[in-house]
Design a protein around this nucleic acid. Structure first.
Lengths: 221, 221
DNA sequence: TACTTCTGACAATTTCGCGTGTCAATATCG
DNA sequence: CGATATTGACACGCGAAATTGTCAGAAGTA
């Protein structure tokens, strides 16, 4: 009763109780995981590597994660969440013009992954290596990124079904186009200007919109 | 001088000289690698697994390959070569109609990877896991598959440059679409009919052709 | 048949990363 | 200042897999 914290939260260190310190360590491990996985790759990164990067010892690793795979999962979702936030911010203050939305979304995406290429590697390369089996997460995880764009894409092409097309397949295809373009851009050191990437990627979306009959004009019904 | 083979090629077994037997063993290892990598994945497959599959012992593995990565490389190029052959065969006897060529190529591709899903896994999943670094082979390998379609794609869209588009980027995007669609089709057990996959994938190509100005009609100049 | 090459099974060695455990140093609290 | 919770450095055992080595027997040759 003498201290501020009533329910026994253990001794405080650096002004933080046990729970807060534990969370801080976990966050440092996630950041270290992003650095390790994103730079050297999942397979090449050992638990010890991550710990060294985080300036923590193995004991604290197993305090927050049961194994390397679980840390990877945390890193992955950390990246997804970050991108989702960026996309929402950039799209929210935009008029509902399909063409503008497409270009803005793509620009946000390409810029974010150029500014932090570690995410690109984690999201598109390491995912497949992190889980041995295709069945379990691999594609479901890649799908996590697909879902990020899926709803938005389906919103853009309401007429797909009329054209006897499968919206889910079309979405997958467009996501695949973005993904491979980003991967290629990443490994070649971002030689092409951002706007060139956006323009060439956007044209795939716009061409489809035209073909399907959705007028890419602002508010035309 | 008493036997048929003049230059000392060692003793014959089963009618085959040393070189032929060595090549046969190598071929069996490649096939076994395709089976192991394609079913259980690269990471989950040990050298011993592959040898058991090939009904050979480890000694013969190291006779033909310095390590697992080198075997994977052989398996990968084996698959690429196989697909390339299939594509050439199906396209060679075809009138130069862009739309027909697109659909035929896609149909050949999708059918081949459905009939042997091991190749899909090797070409699109394991590639990324097999080489730790992105820099070295990973994307170059994926690019190997892209190149398979690249020339053909560029042939389809001669007008790209006029539209201020980068043919190489467009190609990459379209390849990415195909790849992710195939990956998804593979992991979901080929639920969608072949023709639905082809149609939805082809529309991405055709939409672009329309948009760019290439008439997708048979012989229209 | 006698001899040699080739083959296949498997043991031996090495390497490497995981996950756990120990222990001294340090920081906080009474 | 003690007492103790917390931390960080590091050693240890374990198991899996790679790679080399051994050896007996089968298959070809003279």
């Amino acid at each position: 009763m003498s201290t501020v914290n009533s329910p026994a939260k253990g001794r405080k260190f650096r002004g933080l109780d046990a729970v807060q310190r534990r969370e801080e360590r976990r966050a440092r491990l996630v950041e270290a995981g992003l650095e390790a996985f994103g730079r050297r790759g999942f397979q090449a990164s050992t638990v010890k590597d991550v710990c060294t990067e985080a300036r923590l010892t193995e004991r604290y690793f197993y305090e927050s994660f049961v194994n390397r795979e679980e840390l990877f999962s945390a890193v992955y979702h950390h990246c997804i969440q970050h991108l989702r936030q960026l996309l929402m911010n950039s799209l929210s203050s935009l008029p509902p013009d399909p063409r503008a939305m497409t270009q803005t979304a793509l620009r946000t995406l390409f810029a974010a992954l150029r500014d932090d290429p570690r995410m690109a590697r984690v999201l598109f390369i390491d995912v497949l290596a992190a889980h041995g089996d295709m069945d379990k997460h691999s594609l479901n995880a890649m799908q996590g990124f697909a879902d990020l764009l899926q709803g938005y894409i389906q919103l853009l092409f309401p007429q797909l079904k009329r054209a006897q097309l499968n919206p889910s397949l079309i979405s997958t295809g467009l996501v695949g186009a973005c993904v491979l373009l980003i991967m290629r851009w990443t490994v070649t050191g971002f030689q092409e200007p951002l706007e060139e990437m956006v323009r060439n990627c956007a044209v795939l979306f716009e061409a489809l919109a035209t073909q399907v009959g959705t007028t890419p004009a602002p508010t035309a019904a």
